[in-house]
Design a protein around this nucleic acid. Sequence first.
DNA 1: GCATGATATGTCATCCCTGGCATAAAAAAA
DNA 2: TTTTTTTATGCCAGGGATGACATATCATGC
Lengths: 103, 103
Amino acid sequence: MKRLNSAKLRKAGWRSGSVKEFLGLSDEEEALIEMRLSLSRALRERRIEGGISQTDLAARMGSSQSRIAKMEAADPTVSLDLLIRSLLTLGASIKDIARAIAR
Amino acid sequence: MKRLNSAKLRKAGWRSGSVKEFLGLSDEEEALIEMRLSLSRALRERRIEGGISQTDLAARMGSSQSRIAKMEAADPTVSLDLLIRSLLTLGASIKDIARAIAR
DNA sequence: GCATGATATGTCATCCCTGGCATAAAAAAA
DNA sequence: TTTTTTTATGCCAGGGATGACATATCATGC
């Protein structure tokens, strides 16, 4: 079984490398976490590169600063939909998003 | 401006090829619709290829037959999260999903 | 014809995600 | 330092997505 490295798990809020097995996380749940992590990284990269603050981005897409922060923290309460919409707002193309997901 | 072809728009519930402009759909909204369409097509392909009924798939992922049908119809009320979860349930990898999104 | 299975479509109560807000902490600028 | 900006984190009411259900349509076989 493929495993997330410890950095990824820490980012996602897990405490150790085997929490997935301990909690009985399925491969699908693991994949969803990986995708959220990849998209949140892409979001932060794009935003920083554009010199845009979380507050600015929130205004552009009708969201809130706190939600942007949670997106970039890969908070479990943020949907893939919202992450993808934020990337689109930052000018990402569908191909960009596809690339980000698989990275 | 890139335009959805009429088949795609009909699938998404639009009546004519220029509804996007008429309704003032943004490029981001258009991209989201395209992605939902791509994922719903991938879902149907995978499910049919696996010889699995909508009812079976619904049971596997704790959803309902009606929701699967709506997913495959790219109904506006289905989230990308649910589409992606369904593909993962059918054994799709993250790369498979990335490919499906950009197709 | 009828029966059976699969899919489409509509409605609805429930629950999860959302934006908004407050506040704290960190970083940057002054 | 102090001030300002940016980011992090917690909470909550409201709204949208969800599963469940009913029902209709469609296809296939008998």
